[in-house]
């Protein structure tokens, strides 16, 4: 693990940083979606990313766990590149096994839940701990029940995703991500696909997680959640960070006209 210390020294990563981005770029063909993103998410803190659709916020989130490869810049999770190893000044793509190991430490919650539709809620939760971490079935089940309890769905352990409401599905999806004991949880618009009356139950679970000290990066349209739970707020527009700051301050008194305009639409 010398690479971690080396990375920290080389890129000036602050101590206690969980997600660190410097000049992150991403292009799809000729279209540059991210034009140099800087971000530092300290361990145990919550970063909320807002911005109009097409601003690149979801792409940035997907870069963090290497669902998308970055085209340039430095993106570290817990001091390490997710998809690469830095050796002799070159980035070597890591093999599949190592990539999977590192991804297992980065939980992700999707806008469309993406629960495994052929498995019950419980099976969704025990699948990766058993198959990836080699946990015994009994242990995985015990842990899964505890997590379902935590998201208030222990009664739905044997239900298939289709039998659950959107809000329930998203809570199971959060529990599924937690089952891997991730170092950081990424949320990609977790409430955007939900009926308005179901948004609250998901936000309650997320707030509970934040209070328990989970490091979270949340792409969201829920300004209220960002204000009350977020430690920092990032406003992205057209592939750049237009403004960042302490959420309450920034929402009450946005500096950039773009931020002001965006907030006036969503508030």
């Amino acid at each position: 693990m010398t690479s971690k210390a080396e990375n920290q020294a080389r890129f000036g990563v602050p101590d206690n940083s969980m997600v660190f981005a410097r000049g992150v770029r991403k292009s799809f063909g000729n279209v540059e979606v991210l034009k140099g993103i800087d971000l530092n998410v300290p361990t145990g803190s919550v970063a909320c990313v807002i911005g109009p659709s097409g601003s690149g916020k979801s792409t940035f989130l997907r870069c963090i766990n290497h669902l998308e490869e970055v085209s340039g810049g430095v993106l570290l999770v817990d001091g390490e590149f997710v998809g690469y190893d830095l050796r002799h000044g070159k980035l070597y793509e890591v093999n599949n096994k190592l990539l999977c190991q590192r991804r297992a430490d980065i939980g992700m919650v999707f806008q469309s839940f993406n629960l495994f539709s052929h498995m019950t809620a419980l099976e969704n939760l025990i699948e990766a701990p058993m198959m990836v971490k080699g946990m015994s079935k009994a242990e995985a089940k015990e842990k899964a029940f505890a997590l379902l309890e935590r998201v208030g769905l222990s009664a739905k352990a044997d239900a298939y995703p289709r039998q659950l409401s959107g809000g329930q599905q998203q809570r199971v999806a959060i529990a599924r991500a937690l089952a891997m004991n991730p170092k950081v949880l990424l949320f990609d618009e977790p409430t955007s696909a939900l009926d308005p009356e179901l948004v609250g139950e998901v936000l309650v679970v997320m707030r509970d997680l934040a209070e328990s000290g989970m490091t979270m990066v949340v792409v969201t349209h829920e300004i209220g959640f960002a204000r009350e739970v977020g430690d920092q707020l990032i406003f992205m527009d057209r592939g750049v960070v237009e403004e960042r700051g302490e959420p309450r301050e920034m929402i009450a008194n946005p500096q950039s006209p773009r931020t002001r305009e965006f907030l006036s639409h969503v508030l």
Binding site: N65, K97, R103, F110, S112, L115, A128, M131
Partner: peptide, 19 residues
């Protein structure tokens, strides 16, 4: 999305295909 979710849980290609 199913493949992506499985990938984000650290499952490899073969595991994703099979399970």
């Amino acid at each position: 999305g199913q493949t992506e979710a499985a990938g984000s849980l650290g499952m490899n290609h073969r595991l994703i295909l099979r399970r």
